[in-house]
Computed example of a mutant assay.
Amino acid sequence: MSNASFWKGVLPAITTPFSEDGNVDHAFLARHARILVEAGCTGIVPLGSLGEAATLAFDEKVAIVKTLVEAVGDQVPVVPGIASLSTDEAVRLARAVKSVGARGLMVLPVYVYSTDWHEVAAHARAVIGATDLPVLLYNNPVAYKTDILPAQMAELAAEFPNLQAVKESSGDVRRFAAIKEVLGERLVLLVGMDDAIVEGLCMGAEGWIAGLVNAYPVESVKLFEQARDGGYAAARALYDWFLPLLRLDTVPKFVQLIKLVQSKVDLGNERVRAPRLPVFGAEREAALKVIDHAIANRPKL
Results as ranks from 00 to 15, higher is better:
Leu50Tyr: 01
Leu50Asn: 08
Thr55Glu: 00
Lys145Asp: 04
Glu52Lys: 10
Thr42Gln: 09
Glu119Asn: 15
Val72Thr: 08
Gly40Glu: 02
Ala83Glu: 11
Val166Thr: 13
Ala157Asn: 08
Ile148Asp: 05
Pro109Arg: 09
Arg31Pro: 00
Lys61Tyr: 02
Asn139Trp: 06
Ala121His: 13
Leu56Asn: 10
Asp25Met: 04
Val69Cys: 14
Pro161Trp: 08
Thr67Arg: 06
Ala122Glu: 15
His26Gln: 05
Gly129Ile: 15
Arg31Val: 07
Gly171Gln: 07
Ala71Lys: 00
Val120Phe: 09
Ala63Met: 09
Tyr144Glu: 03
Gln152Trp: 00
Leu163Glu: 04
Ser49Val: 05
Ile35Trp: 03
Leu68Val: 01
Asn140Ile: 14
Val79Asp: 00
Ala124Gln: 14
Glu119Met: 13
Leu29Gly: 07
Asp59Gln: 13
Lys66Gln: 13
Glu60Trp: 05
Lys145Ala: 04
Leu108Gln: 08
His32Glu: 02
Val107Trp: 06
Ser114Arg: 15
Ala53Ser: 06
Ser170Thr: 15
Ala71Phe: 00
Gln75Pro: 03
Ala39Pro: 02
Ala143Val: 10
Gln152Glu: 13
Glu52His: 01
Thr42Met: 01
Val112Thr: 15
Leu68Gln: 04
Glu159Asp: 12
Phe160Glu: 05
Leu85Cys: 06
Leu36Glu: 05
Arg92Asp: 11
Leu108Thr: 10
Arg103Val: 03
Ala126Lys: 11
Gly129Arg: 15
Lys61Val: 05
Val65Tyr: 01
Pro134Ile: 08
Ala102Phe: 05
Gly104Thr: 06
Pro80Thr: 08
Gly40Trp: 02
Glu155Gln: 14
Ala102Tyr: 08
Val142Lys: 05
Ser86Arg: 14
Glu159Met: 12
Glu119Gly: 08
Pro77Ile: 04
Ala124Lys: 13
Pro150Lys: 02
Ala157Leu: 01
Ile128Lys: 09
Val173Phe: 02
